[in-house]
Amino acid sequence: MYKNFFDQASVLIFDLDGTLYEGTEHFNLHVDNLKSKLNNDQKEEFKAIYDQILSGEHPVQIGKIYDGKRDIVWTWDPFTEELTEARNWDDEIVEVTDAPNKIAAHEFDFKNWVPIGDGWWPPYAIARHFGIQIDTIQASYNRTKEQMAELDGYLQQTSGLKEYLKELKKDKHLVVCTNSDELDAKRLLKFLEIDEHFDELIPSAMKPVHTKKHFDYVINKYNVKPEQVVSVGDNFMNEIAPALQLGMKAVWLTDAKEKPVENDHYVLTDTLAQ
């Protein structure tokens, strides 16, 4: 069904990390880098929690909000922006009287309010839970991105993607909108041999805080209606929910089996490979 979206679209906006290349091993690499900051007992506990998250047996999950101030996890509705339930790390519901009822995407500060939108963020939340400082977590993330380019097996080209993008570009505008900085994004796109297929790169996008601003910019620049634009990404909060709110269409690259919210403007798929 996502190919029907593509056929009908005039503009396609792609995320980069987790979208335009294959594999999830880099998340494990990030976990190992963070674990190196802990003692042996904490390393084992970190890994145990991470395994629980991957198996869906922990409150930290994609689509949740990590409350760094209180070290708890919130259920958040991306359309009403309501915080509906808080749970601690033992998966117990907790009563919170001093938190807002709603939080908008532009209020995410990635310190006190952290959207868990893709696989990079559960390790972040666990690290915060163990008291690792934000600057140290960021340094680990940066090191992981460097290692992905240096080591074998961490950046895998999606089979058929280069050819598919080349075909799409014949009658559509293709844009990359990524939270990676410009240097990193250009390096990755060149390494993946797909840099020449995009009309535009929007780096350091600060998604989801500024996602709608970037999407509005694309809609206006290319003079199209929202329903003629498709957002493609692996992060529901960063790329999917904002697109739906603007009336765009979206393709969510995920191994999730069910939609967080029902809407006929988006589909689930786990690959763009042909």
Results as ranks from 00 to 15, higher is better:
K221Q: 14
K221D: 02
V232Y: 04
V224M: 05
F198K: 07
M206K: 13
P226M: 08
E196F: 07
K221I: 03
K225C: 00
E196S: 14
D216C: 11
D195N: 14
K212F: 03
D216E: 15
P226N: 09
I202T: 07
S231G: 12
P203D: 10
P226Y: 05
V230I: 11
D195S: 15
H214G: 05
I202L: 14
Y222F: 13
T211Q: 02
E200V: 08
E227G: 01
P208L: 00
P208R: 02
N223H: 12
H210Y: 12
I219A: 10
P208A: 03
P226D: 06
D234K: 08
I202V: 12
F215H: 07
E196P: 03
D199R: 04
H210P: 05
P226Q: 09
K213D: 12
K225D: 09
L201H: 07
G233N: 10
N223W: 01
D199E: 12
S204E: 11
D199C: 08
K207I: 02
V232D: 09
N220K: 15
V224H: 06
D216W: 09
K213T: 15
D216N: 15
K225P: 01
I219P: 00
K213P: 03
V230T: 07
K213A: 13
T211A: 15
E196L: 10
A205T: 02
H214I: 02
N223V: 09
M206P: 00
P208S: 04
I219H: 03
Y217E: 09
D195Q: 13
V218K: 01
N220P: 02
G233H: 09
A205R: 05
Q228D: 12
E227R: 12
K212E: 15
F198Y: 06
N223M: 10
M206D: 13
D216P: 01
A205D: 03
H214K: 04
V229T: 13
P208M: 02
D216R: 15
V229L: 14
T211K: 01
M206R: 13
K212Q: 15
M206L: 12
Q228A: 12
T211H: 06
V224K: 14
K225N: 11
I219K: 14
V209K: 15
H197V: 12
V230S: 07
I219V: 14
V229N: 07
N220T: 10
V229W: 05
H210Q: 15
V230K: 02
N220M: 03
I202P: 00
K207Y: 03
D195L: 10
F215T: 01
N223P: 00
D234Y: 06
K207R: 03
V229I: 09
V232H: 06
Y217P: 00
G233W: 07
M206C: 10
K213R: 13
Y222Q: 07
K225L: 13
V230G: 05
K212D: 11
N223I: 05
I219N: 00
I219D: 01
F215K: 00
S204F: 04
Q228W: 05
K207Q: 06
K213L: 12
I202R: 07
P208K: 01
S204C: 05
P208D: 06
H197P: 04
S231A: 15
V232T: 08
Y222A: 08
Y222G: 07
V229M: 11
Y222R: 08
H197W: 11
H214C: 04
E196H: 11
D199T: 07
V224S: 08
V230F: 03
K225T: 12
S204W: 02
P226W: 05
D195Y: 11
A205F: 00
